[in-house]
Design a protein around this nucleic acid. Structure first.
Lengths: 184, 184
DNA sequence: CCCGTTTATGCAACTAGTTGCAGAAGGGTG
DNA sequence: CACCCTTCTGCAACTAGTTGCATAAACGGG
């Protein structure tokens, strides 16, 4: 149940329309809570219904017309509460680890290429995070919000590093297994 | 679309009934692809329908009666194909990173306790993985399946280490922010 | 032998997220 | 102005996963 909170956070950072939110999700909040525009529109509707946000008054309220939303006090209160809420980490659900486990049973044929592809993707993501880090978090910026946002970004960076490391190990392991005759 | 593959893998490792599968998920495959018994039963039904697995013949085919499943050649083929399939990593979706980001906007009140709780949970999980490692993967075991399964487990271990590291940093950051007067 | 607990399977209803598509407004171009 | 492309909002239908509950057999006392 985090999408509404993701939206509230984004709207507090800056009031926006549905499409603007979608775009900002693609390059910021979406890095750790991705979402599609349809989900966002639906959730905006719900949040408006429940009095957490409201649409800024517009002259032309019609379909296809931009609608800006801002957070109401009830929305901010809800978010504040959520920050401190007790909520267990979700159990890991990762298809690649699962595939490796399957490979232990049915063999590793064709797996190397896929691992290399993932490795490249994670390297690219790491580069993207690093360039954001350089642009947004130079050493002199240390207002409270900056430090916390930087911390979140470092989480993303270290998670990519973890994958790069693991994939590298996995490829090495695969190479060794292929080098020795089956059953040796 | 990984649950059916998780089930196929588990059934290849050992033919089982629905409940047995559920239990094994709780302490093995479920570490990286968790699932409830209802989902497993439903999926077993589908896999049987589609000819990937079959129920072993039993004398008493009735409700409340144990039903063992085994994988058919079509199921093994499907799994083999999936191992090499092109499937992009799912974008990260993590509520705790999101909460930290929200905290940058609405403040960190009450967050420390929650971070400490998560830290303890991750430490416990790490300990569990390590004890599995000791029991199941002594240095002399290096058959192909063992090496790959060990690799998967090391993935789990390093992921827990990542969280422990990040949470430790986060708590340090929080302590520093609390130590200085707001706006300093 | 009746009764409560455990084992085992499963249905129904719900929530969250995804995919595909449609429709209205506005801007640019021949 | 007719056409098309982009922007923006949204519905409908689907898939995956969760929650709550029902049912049936088996087991173990008293």
């Amino acid at each position: 149940m985090s999408l509404p909170h993701a939206i509230l956070t984004a709207l507090l950072e800056k009031p926006s329309s549905g499409l603007e939110l979608t775009r900002r999700f693609d390059r910021s909040i979406g890095y750790f809570w991705s979402s599609t525009h349809q989900q966002i529109y639906r959730e905006l509707g719900r949040l408006e219904q429940s009095g957490h946000i409201r649409a800024l008054p517009s002259e032309v309220p019609a379909r296809g017309q931009k609608k800006e939303y801002e957070v109401l006090p009830a929305g901010r209160a809800e978010l504040t509460e959520w920050v401190a809420a007790r909520e267990d980490p979700k159990p890991v659900r990762d298809a690649l680890l699962l595939r490796m486990r399957a490979a232990a049973v049915v063999g590793t044929a064709g797996l190397r290429a896929e691992l290399e592809r993932h490795l490249a993707l994670h390297r690219r993501q790491l580069e993207e995070y690093r360039s954001i880090e350089e642009r947004h978090f130079p050493p002199e910026r240390d207002a409270e919000e900056d430090r916390l946002r930087h911390l979140v970004l470092r989480g993303g960076i270290d998670m990519e590093r973890f994958w790069i490391e693991w994939l590298t190990q996995a490829l090495k392991e695969l190479a060794e297994l292929e080098a020795r005759p089956a059953g040796a």
